[in-house]
């Protein structure tokens, strides 16, 4: 038996796929920005915060890094309503991704903070800067500079991992591909196109992140 390929059968659904792609992009951007903010706060707490905050963040990081993302997502979307926290598919997808990236980026940014020489902290202290000022003006940018490649990779991983949100019917690219496939039964073509779109998106993101890196850290 030979399979007759027909990418033409996808054409009527191009807008569905485009909307899915857009959804994936927006979800990734929004949860990346928020997730990095969470990661920054977490890294601060683990490096400079009070002891109890450091432990709490440590527990959060270990919990998230040692459980599957899909279980985290299901817990947020199906589990939390049991205690009265209800949200839409999109809200749950966003929250789960922020929680996930927040944990991973906490660890990455913390490594960057630890790589800042102690002498720089003493120099800042000697200039009468407070701990918070030191963190904001001396530590943070250096830390990001040092771990920017690792952070960039993690962001792309998060984008690719976002495909899982289709499992709670958040209408991302994978959800769109599933939908199209269920209509025209062109699984091979649909998923091939979806894979290519993810690939292009990943390549575009890496290029964009490199550009942002060059702009932020001119003489790194």
């Amino acid at each position: 038996m030979t399979y007759q390929m027909s990418f033409g059968d996808l054409l009527p659904y191009w807008d569905v796929l485009a909307r899915g792609l857009l959804y994936t992009i927006i979800l990734t951007v929004v949860s990346t920005v928020t997730g990095l903010a969470v990661g920054t706060a977490g890294a601060w707490a683990r490096s400079f915060g009070p002891k109890w905050a450091g432990y709490a963040v440590g527990a959060y990081v270990e919990l998230i890094r040692n459980t599957p993302f899909i279980v985290q997502l299901f817990f947020v979307f199906f589990g939390l309503p049991a205690i009265g926290v209800k949200m839409t598919e999109s809200e749950a997808a966003f929250l789960a991704m922020v929680i996930n990236l927040g944990a991973y980026s906490t660890e990455i940014i913390r490594a960057g903070i630890q790589a800042v020489p102690k002498g720089h902290l003493e120099a800042a202290a000697s200039l009468a800067m407070s701990r918070l000022e030191t963190f904001r003006y001396v530590v943070l940018k250096q830390a990001f500079m040092k771990v920017y490649p690792a952070l960039s990779s993690q962001i792309v991983i998060v984008m690719l991992g976002s495909a899982v949100v289709s499992q709670i019917s958040a209408e991302d690219l994978t959800y769109a591909a599933n939908f199209v496939q269920s209509r025209n039964f062109r699984a091979f073509e649909v998923y091939l196109v979806a894979a290519l779109l993810y690939l292009l998106l990943a390549i575009a993101m890496r290029a964009l992140l490199r550009g942002i890196g060059r702009a932020l850290f001119p003489k790194a």
Binding site: G119, A123, L127, A128, E133
Partner: peptide, 30 residues
């Protein structure tokens, strides 16, 4: 510390800031 300056063996300049920005930082922030 606003009255006591310190210079270190290892310079400890902030590498993400220019020479001028290194000098400007504490006067603006502190």
């Amino acid at each position: 510390r606003r009255h006591v300056g310190m210079v270190f063996q290892q310079f400890n300049l902030f590498p993400h800031l220019t020479a001028g920005e290194n000098v400007m930082l504490a006067p603006t922030v502190v």
